[in-house]
C-alpha cells in the first residue's frame, strides 16, 4: 500500500519539478516584478498601465485580431472537419497528416514565407499581375497579421473539433436523418452541439496565444502596428523596464483568466461526461 504510494510520488516527481521550476517560480518572479517599481517598493501602477491610451489601444487591437482570427479559424475548421469525417479519416489519416505537416517546420520560417508571398513585389502580386489585378498592398497591414495568425493557429482549431466530431457515432447521425432532418438540421441539432467541447478547446488554444502574439505582428506588420505583445516585448528588451513589462503581462493574464472562467462555465454542460477531445 505504502509502496504504491511511494511509486506514485516518484513517478509524479519529474512533473512536479517541471511545474514548480518552470511555471510556479517564474510566475511568482513575474508577479513580484509587476507589483514593484524600480526601487523595489510596492505599487499597482504597472498593472493599471494597461489603461494608458497607448497600451489600451494596442490591447484593443490585439483583441480585435485575436477575435477575428479565432472566428475565421472556426469558420474554416467546420467544413474541413465535416469533409474529414466523410473521408472516414479515422482509418485514413492522410489528410490530417497534410494539415499537421507544416507544424513540423519552425513557425518563424512559415511567417517569413508569408512575408514573401504578401510583400509588394511578392508572389501574390506577381500572380495577380498576370491576370491583370492589383497590385494589392496587403503587406504591413492588420490583414496580413491576421492571415499569419490564422495560418499558424488553424491546426489548433481543427484538431480538437475533429476529435470531437470523429467520436460522434454514425448511428446518431443516421437516426437524425431517418427522423427527417436535412443536412443543415443534422449539423445544427446533432453534430454542432456534440462538437462543442472540441470547439471550446479550439477557441482557447487559438484565442489566448494570438492575443499575446508579437512575432507575427513584427514580421508581417512591418513594425508599424503594435499588439500588446509587442509593447511588452519592448519594455523588456529595449526600454529595460521589466516592472512595467511584467505589470502589463499580469494584467493581460488576469483578463485571460476572466475570459477563460467564462468559457469553462459554458463548457461545463457538454464536457462533464469526459467524452470528446476537450483539453480542459
Amino acid at each position: 500500500m505504502n509502496n504504491r504510494r511511494n511509486t506514485r510520488v516518484l513517478l509524479s516527481g519529474p512533473y512536479l519539478l517541471w511545474a514548480v521550476g518552470f511555471t510556479v517560480i517564474p510566475l511568482f518572479v513575474i508577479i513580484r516584478y509587476a507589483l514593484t517599481d524600480e526601487t523595489g517598493a510596492f505599487t499597482l501602477n504597472n498593472l493599471f498601465a494597461i489603461a494608458d491610451p497607448i497600451n489600451l489601444k494596442a490591447t484593443v487591437f490585439s483583441l480585435e485580431i485575436a477575435l477575428m482570427s479565432t472566428m475565421i479559424c472556426v469558420l474554416l475548421a467546420y467544413p474541413l472537419v465535416l469533409a474529414f469525417r466523410r473521408l472516414n479519416l479515422s482509418k485514413n489519416r492522410f489528410m490530417l497528416f497534410i494539415l499537421i505537416l507544416p507544424m513540423w517546420m519552425n513557425f518563424i520560417l512559415r511567417i517569413l514565407a508569408w512575408q514573401m508571398i504578401l510583400s509588394n513585389n511578392g508572389i501574390l502580386n506577381f500572380i495577380l499581375g498576370k491576370i491583370g489585378i492589383g497590385p494589392l498592398h496587403i503587406a504591413n497591414t492588420g490583414l496580413s497579421i491576421m492571415i499569419g495568425v490564422v495560418y499558424d493557429y488553424l491546426p489548433y482549431m481543427v484538431l480538437p473539433i475533429f476529435n470531437a466530431v470523429a467520436e460522434i457515432d454514425e448511428d446518431v447521425i443516421e437516426a437524425a436523418r431517418d427522423l427527417g432532418g436535412n443536412s443543415l438540421t443534422v449539423f445544427r441539432k446533432v453534430i454542432f452541439p456534440l462538437s462543442l467541447p472540441g470547439l471550446m478547446s479550439g477557441i482557447i488554444m487559438v484565442f489566448i496565444p494570438s492575443m499575446t502574439e508579437f512575432v507575427i505582428a513584427d514580421i508581417l506588420g512591418g513594425g508599424k502596428l503594435q499588439l500588446v505583445g509587442n509593447i511588452i516585448e519592448q519594455e523588456f528588451t529595449r526600454s529595460s523596464n521589466w516592472n512595467l513589462g511584467a505589470g502589463l503581462s499580469v494584467a493581460l493574464m488576469l483578463f485571460m483568466m476572466v475570459s477563460m472562467a467564462f468559457t469553462m462555465k459554458t463548457d461545463h454542460g457538454y464536457g462533464s461526461d469526459g467524452k470528446a477531445g476537450a483539453v480542459w
Binding site: 510583400s119 509588394n120 503587406a139 504591413n140 512591418g222 513594425g223 508599424k224
Partner: peptide, 19 residues
C-alpha cells in the same frame, strides 16, 4: 508614408524591390 520599420530585413526589402 513609411512602408515598414525594420532593422535586419531593411536591406533585403530594397534588394527585392519591395521598397
Amino acid at each position: 508614408d513609411v512602408q515598414a520599420y525594420l532593422v535586419d530585413e531593411a536591406r533585403d526589402e530594397v534588394v527585392a524591390g519591395n521598397a
